[in-house]
Amino acid sequence: MKIAVTGASGLIGRTLVPRLQADGHEVLRLVRRTPRAAEEHRWAPEHRRIDPALLADVDAVVHLAGEPIRPRPWTEGYRQRLLASRVDGTTTISEALAAAAADDLGRRRVLVSGSGIDYYPDLGDRQVTEDDGPGDSFLARLCVRWEAATAPAAEAGVRVVNLRTGLVLGPGAPLVRILGLVFRLGLGGRVGSGQQYWPWISLTDEVEAIVHLLGSEVSGPVNLTAPNPVTNAEFTRTLGQVLHRPTPLPVPGFALSLALGEFARSSILGGRRAVPRKLLDSGFTFAHPDLDGALRAALSRR
């Protein structure tokens, strides 16, 4: 297959590109800067510009680009950057794929496009599947618009998959770096009540799931989360065991809310007991179905 990838320099993209190349696929990396290699090609998502020829003969696009969601107060300007980077980029890719499909009706194409598990509301202990509707938080509304931006491709007959990804655990992942440091210093503990569910997935399974979805017939939203979600208290306890550190210091929820505002309330103090129903139904097998193994792999020193 000939596959174009956006966000190839990010955590997932850096692992995905060589994985696809190892399988013999031809990979084009779409970048916003000046290209530095033959397989790199420039696009300008902020201006909704891309050379139509770039996607004319591709079989698939894996679209992972977007402004990183950081643990910081969300100013109005930052919210707009988060939204625009996702909607503009996805619209650009989707419309270009739709045009390519119109010119070449014989080629079966697929768009695998990023989204987030924050699409859903916090439903407490209730399991969340792809059939559940969206929440009303800022991140939920962002995900709704992000996924809606793939409509031009879907309407043109392109198979579209929306990756509702959970917390990715892998070497170099921001969550792993931050929590690893805090816990190694003996300062770790549950956050807030600790009863909120943290839907997670190992970096290995994230990448292998994308590869699997490229070759399957699955379409629509897919939860990219491990089959065994855990509460924050369970996550904390397991991380402490892996690092052989105590976890005595709970972090008050009100303090995080004051410091980080809606980011804390939605992504840290809130939770979703999301399960990967469609992924499992399609025959995917997880390398790291349980948190202990995923954390050990993520924290291994390479």
Score class of each variant (00 low, 15 high):
residue 55 L to H: 05
residue 55 L to G: 02
residue 55 L to N: 10
residue 55 L to C: 07
residue 56 A to T: 09
residue 57 D to V: 12
residue 58 V to L: 06
residue 58 V to F: 07
residue 59 D to M: 07
residue 60 A to R: 03
residue 60 A to S: 09
residue 60 A to D: 03
residue 61 V to H: 08
residue 61 V to E: 01
residue 61 V to P: 03
residue 61 V to M: 01
residue 62 V to E: 02
residue 63 H to A: 07
residue 63 H to D: 07
residue 63 H to T: 05
residue 63 H to V: 08
residue 64 L to W: 01
residue 64 L to I: 06
residue 66 G to W: 01
residue 67 E to A: 11
residue 67 E to Y: 08
residue 68 P to T: 08
residue 68 P to A: 10
residue 68 P to S: 05
residue 70 R to F: 11
residue 70 R to N: 14
residue 70 R to L: 15
residue 70 R to Y: 13
residue 70 R to I: 14
residue 70 R to V: 15
residue 71 P to C: 12
residue 72 R to H: 14
residue 72 R to P: 11
residue 73 P to G: 08
residue 74 W to K: 09
residue 74 W to Y: 15
residue 75 T to D: 06
residue 75 T to V: 12
residue 75 T to P: 08
residue 75 T to Y: 10
residue 76 E to P: 12
residue 77 G to P: 11
residue 77 G to E: 15
residue 77 G to V: 14
residue 77 G to Y: 13
residue 78 Y to S: 11
residue 78 Y to T: 13
residue 79 R to I: 04
residue 79 R to P: 00
residue 79 R to W: 06
residue 79 R to L: 10
residue 79 R to F: 05
residue 80 Q to C: 13
residue 81 R to N: 08
residue 82 L to P: 00
residue 82 L to D: 00
residue 82 L to V: 09
residue 82 L to Y: 09
residue 83 L to P: 03
residue 83 L to Q: 13
residue 83 L to S: 12
residue 84 A to C: 09
residue 84 A to I: 05
residue 84 A to S: 14
residue 84 A to M: 11
residue 84 A to F: 08
residue 85 S to A: 11
residue 85 S to W: 04
residue 86 R to C: 02
residue 86 R to Q: 09
residue 87 V to A: 05
residue 87 V to C: 01
residue 88 D to H: 14
residue 88 D to P: 09
residue 88 D to T: 07
residue 88 D to K: 14
residue 88 D to G: 04
residue 88 D to N: 14
residue 89 G to E: 00
residue 89 G to F: 03
residue 90 T to L: 06
residue 90 T to A: 06
residue 91 T to M: 12
residue 91 T to R: 12
residue 91 T to P: 04
residue 91 T to Y: 08
residue 91 T to L: 14
residue 92 T to P: 04
residue 93 I to R: 03
residue 94 S to Y: 07
residue 95 E to D: 13
residue 96 A to W: 05
residue 96 A to M: 07
residue 96 A to I: 03
residue 97 L to C: 05
residue 97 L to D: 00
residue 97 L to S: 02
residue 98 A to I: 05
residue 98 A to P: 04
residue 98 A to V: 09
residue 98 A to K: 01
residue 98 A to Q: 05
residue 99 A to M: 11
residue 99 A to K: 11
residue 100 A to G: 07
residue 100 A to R: 01
residue 101 A to N: 11
residue 101 A to K: 11
residue 101 A to I: 05
residue 102 A to N: 11
residue 102 A to L: 10
residue 103 D to V: 13
